[in-house]
Design a protein around this nucleic acid. Structure first.
Lengths: 349, 349
DNA sequence: TCCTTTATGCTCAGTCTGAGTATAAAGAGC
DNA sequence: GCTCTTTATACTCAGACTGAGCATAAAGGA
């Protein structure tokens, strides 16, 4: 009678070490290999996936306790900061899995931890999240992949649009998402960019999902009338299983937004740190360089940190004072966040 | 073997008419009446509830299409702007329902509509959302209920805390949530305020839930060692069924935040409007008065609206020019939002 | 000692914000 | 017609905040 339901709990577990933002991934057998056509899976039969586990409807009193439970069981990590991200429930999210016919609803979470050794289930590893989104890291320079691959590919896609109005809209979306025709780069639009690339058929997942759909529903027409020609479509960024890269994009965008107005970065830092270390972590997450002196001014004036009186002389120059996060701030007024080109509207009374 | 699972879709459907923000509610039989003790249910056997419907795992391709489907079926409303809010999955959210033992996971959505006639399922009605949160409307004046009831009650609750440190923390939470000891009122902390009142036992739902827990799990100890004395606990605001008031608080807080940085207000307005009408809608949502001239300046400069050349002479004074929302802005740069005392950090490069 | 490197303090102009003043345009009452 | 009330709209101004850069301090190494 009713389609069976499964609640999955997905976790995007983030840490930052050595100025590299990392995401905890597991390996997952690549079911789509059974299909005609070749997968863009670097090590053959396995794809990266976000760790996930089912909700134990009987035992887990709350969703996030369920998440913490299986993360602990699988990886030995005791999660601290955890935030619900989004619930993904599209049919066909998992076309092959769960006995074809079960509906999988995934509640995705973002968790921040200090990186540490893993134990428990084997195949977990920390990966630089910019492997999945190579166009998102603007710290050193505007990523060359944008001009080299993304812009030309998307230009083709735009050009292939039928109606002139459609074409103009597509062009606009592309420009805004990737900061192209004079538009500013908005580091929070991670999901928008990924979905644009997906829609245009330039990420491996789109190709795979399309094939799976055709296989499962033989008569189904291809929705993407504008999908690129069969030959040499670039595959941008490292793919993941199912819709996990979409979930990761959601996590990244949300985190980039959140650091601007809530002091969550400190979850990723050790208890004392120099202001430059703090800045580097923020930059790693935001994928953007910040002005050092102004960053200091903002963080200090914001009352987020306090001096410890101790110094770190490993800096290579003048020793830097170590600071610590003022926990009181969590309970004080608005507990801002560490600065970034954020929003800025106002007015009152 | 496994506990049965139900995915519920809840909708907080919001409209604003005559400067009153309204929420669409339905009536729901009050199961807790079967228990000893009396419910604070104004019309006896029914409680207000947010409209909800189950996901049809077989037929609904996505969660929000499922939502739109049953909202259409039940009320005749075709939803436009819809945004996922949060997924609520605590056990005991619905202690009585669904044959005791089923686990209900609710995905809550926020929807904005222009108010209109309802048809379809009978018992739906639009209610001023400040009936549920009488302490949230600061437009005319600081609500008297805060000083008259909330502050004294919470002061008692704080005083009842055992440990001095606990007491200090509670005091801090109260001050910040309700803007008490010199703290500023932050209109976005709707959920924090509701949860504080719940925890302290001053909303009807807490009393009801506590009774239900005691009934269902006879041996369960009362977590809330500080819950108020049995006599004369005030019941603040109109209660709702289950955890629907919590969901509504989430919706309100999220909407109050969102109008600051995305132009969502226009979903609630007719196609042309005067700037004062726009301002009144924003004020209704935010529960705060704004400075008229500055509001104009921000909205006009932000490029959110354009003049129509037509005028509204129903103003009672000089006719006001009618404006229209510039849809292009959705696809342009950051598409800010209409002003409010929002955030304001920044720095870059 | 000089040079390089990083830390940290300070300045300055441009912009944004909050608040208020001033003028314009309608209707009501006379 | 004129005056008063009401709302709309334009403009001003001081203070705060932002983005950018200059200057000095403190360490290690050549």
């Amino acid at each position: 009678m009713t389609t069976p339901l499964v609640i999955g709990l997905n976790a995007a577990i983030v840490a930052v070490t050595h100025e590299v933002p990392r995401i905890l991934t597991v390996k997952r057998p690549d079911h789509s290999l059974a299909l005609p056509g070749e997968m863009v899976s670097e090590d053959g039969a396995f794809l990266d996936a976000l760790p996930f586990g089912p909700l134990d409807a009987r035992a887990d009193p709350t969703l996030d306790l369920g998440l913490r439970r299986w993360v602990r069981e699988q990886t030995g990590i005791e999660l601290g900061y955890v935030e619900q991200l989004y619930t993904f429930g599209d049919r066909n999210r998992d076309p092959e899995g769960h006995g074809a016919g079960a509906r999988v609803i995934s509640v995705a979470y973002l968790a921040l931890v200090r990186e540490r050794q893993l134990f428990g289930a084997a195949e977990a590893s920390w990966r630089d999240w910019y492997e999945y989104f190579p166009w998102e890291d603007w710290r050193l320079t505007r990523p060359s992949i944008i001009d080299r691959e993304i812009a030309p590919s998307l230009a083709q896609w735009v050009a292939a649009a039928g109606h002139p109005t459609t074409r103009r809209r597509c062009q606009e979306r592309v420009d805004i998402a990737f900061g192209l025709s004079g538009a500013a780069w908005d580091e929070e639009r991670v999901l928008e960019r990924y979905e644009l690339l997906y829609e245009a058929g330039f990420v491996a997942e789109e190709v795979r999902d399309r094939m799976l759909r055709t296989k499962l529903q033989p008569g189904s027409q291809n929705r993407h009338s504008q999908s690129p020609s069969q030959t040499e479509t670039p595959s941008l960024g490292r793919p993941m299983a199912l819709d996990h890269r979409r979930i990761l994009a959601t996590a990244l965008g949300r985190l980039r937004g959140k650091i601007k107005y809530r002091p969550v970065v400190f979850e990723l830092l050790s208890s004392t740190f120099t202001l430059l270390q703090l800045q580097r972590v923020v930059e790693a997450l935001a994928g953007v360089r910040l002005h050092k002196q102004n960053f200091r001014r903002l963080v200090e004036k914001g009352g987020l940190v306090e001096r410890t009186g101790q110094f770190d002389s490993e800096t290579g120059g003048r020793p830097a004072e170590l600071f610590r996060f003022r926990r009181e701030v969590l309970r004080e007024r608005l507990a801002p966040g560490v600065g970034l080109p954020g929003a800025g509207r106002s007015l009152e009374s």
